[in-house]
Design a protein around this nucleic acid. Structure first.
Length: 258
DNA sequence: TTGTGTTTTATTGCCTCC
DNA sequence: GGAGGCAATAAAACACAA
């Protein structure tokens, strides 16, 4: 509502509507019959005030209350009913605006939370990427470090597994640690491309030794469908010695299954 | 003064309830 | 079927800027 309109005094109202001098006169059906059908009559501020008070008490209008209000305000019961009708419509519109504001506020709060969570997520992601890169760099540096910096655990071959592994070991270790290993074809872990090739056998606990000699199946003389390799295994120390011209280690036999 | 936007009053048509 | 409520709408009343 624009300023000034609802603040119109009774005096001003009476100037605009000089026909009424009392509520009884206002409640005169003949007045409405005399008015041109297009004319609309603004209620006075007093009438509006009373209607508002009544609306606050109860926004629905029972017939009895409608009649009483109409008499009190000098209006047609129909006018009172229409006023309540329109007032309910205005209240509903305002209520929708209030609901919208509440929802919008809630939405803004959620959006803000979402944004900060997303930022945190991005930060964590970049941390993961950074850490992965560091890991890769470290992984590349490993071959340059001592080749056997951890203890070599014996390959767990129990009696049941022995026929499958078909290990033929010429174990030169007095300690009884690893002397042979089977290399699965699914994960080629033996690289033989030169005399100085290294066995990349995880089964040796990371210990890598240069391949001194390769014995083929034919050379081995076996006919069980397996490909045998005679491999010279060296320890870290032995590898270092080998680099210096000495070769200390032991021969063992490995074969591919299948 | 006038054009324009807003508010208020009133009507119409449809729907629900008793 | 009548009474009453509601949504949509018309139109008058009003405020205000240019």
């Amino acid at each position: 509502m624009k300023a000034g309109r609802s603040m119109m005094s009774m005096e001003e109202a009476s100037k605009r509507r000089p026909f009424f001098t009392s509520p009884d006169e206002l409640y005169d059906e003949e007045y409405y019959e005399k008015q041109s059908p297009e004319k609309k009559h603004r209620l006075s501020s007093e009438q509006v005030h009373l209607l508002e008070k009544s609306f606050e008490e109860e926004n629905k209008l029972e017939p009895e209350r409608k009649t009483q209000l109409a008499k009190k305000l000098g209006l047609q019961p129909r006018q009172v009913a229409v006023w309540f009708q329109n007032r309910r419509a205005r209240w509903k519109t305002k209520q929708l605006e209030r609901d919208f504001d509440v929802l919008k506020s809630s939405y803004d709060t959620l959006l803000s939370s979402y944004d900060s969570i997303m930022k945190e997520n991005e930060k964590l992601k970049s941390e993961v990427v950074s850490l992965n890169e560091k890991l890769q760099v470290q992984a590349k540096e490993v071959p340059e470090e001592p080749l056997c910096d951890k203890k070599v655990d014996p390959i767990p071959v129990d009696e049941d597994m022995a026929p499958i592994f078909g290990t033929r070991v010429e174990d030169h270790l007095s300690s009884g640690s690893v002397g042979s290993a089977v290399v699965d074809e699914g994960s080629p872990q033996v690289v033989v491309d030169s005399v100085d090739s290294y066995i990349l056998a995880d089964n040796y606990g990371g210990c890598v030794g240069p391949v001194e000699r390769v014995q083929s199946e034919e050379e081995d003389g076996s006919d069980d469908g397996r490909s045998y390799l005679d491999v010279f295994v060296v320890s870290e120390t032995e590898h270092q010695n080998h680099e210096e011209g000495e070769t200390l280690g032991w021969w063992t036999n490995m074969y591919y299954v299948g």
